[in-house]
Amino acid sequence: MKVTLWGTRGSLATPGPESIRYGGNTSCVEVRGEDDTLLVLDAGTGVRRLGDTIRPEIGRVDLLLTHLHMDHIQGLGFFEPLFMPGLSVHIWGPSSTTEGLRERLQHYLSPPLFPVRLRDVPCKLTLHDVVQREDFRVGPFQIKADLVCHPGPTVGFRIRENDRVLAYIPDHEPALGMPDFPSEPAWLSGYEIAQGADLLIHDAQFSEDEYPSHVGWGHSSIPQALDFARATGVKALVPFHHDPSHSDEIMDELWEKAKADPDLPFALVPAREGATFEL
């Protein structure tokens, strides 16, 4: 499994000279299987550049949406595979208690927010509502989706190929309302998604100082992300969903401090746009 980061920023695309090294595009991750099966995780603004690398000959693309906040779907209308006639595009994502995935996506992909309606895209489009704790298979990938602590219906994904596991929880506040965080596994949001993963891509939006004024916004501080990774026994953590206000310089300082802990039981590799990982 090869994992490539096309968008690492949280909340809002942040282009500019201050964000060149860690990246300014919002959430998007490419996952390639041994047989070249393609999964795309989230459709933030990073998905546009990824889409430009995809040829119709691939036959099928599966896009897995963790949730439908704008920073995770804003690139969808610019995802070239949607406009390739004959290409099968499967979109997986959470419904709400009152609307299915198609209805929810149509709120964005329709006027006045977008000129092209979802029903008019020329690809062969199939939508799948991801319900709680549903397992599904795409090519060589066994995929588990489970709801996690973030405002609105939001899932994390656990993706297994052979004996390798990628866990993806880009928006997650498991410490919300938990004075004893990280608690025992039965009461820890996201535990079964992340448990023992070879690579965990996880929300680490805020610094420790910033978190108290953002409690309930659905995101983790850097120390909370480290504690979650420790509690779930992952082998490597990729802190993700960087705050738009964090310049490259600020992030260098934050990660230098985080890496100073000599007892970290996992590799710590802060997400940078363009980075790749082989599992």
């Binding site: 709680q132 704790r133 489970d146 709801l147 996690v148 602590c149 309302g177 025992e184 596994p185 039965a186 009461w187 820890l188 949001s189 535990y191 079964e192």
Partner: peptide
């Protein structure tokens, strides 16, 4: 012990 459903976790 298996992880509880998120709704139970949030309720707790």
């Amino acid at each position: 012990m298996a992880q509880r459903a998120i709704e139970l976790i949030l309720m707790r």
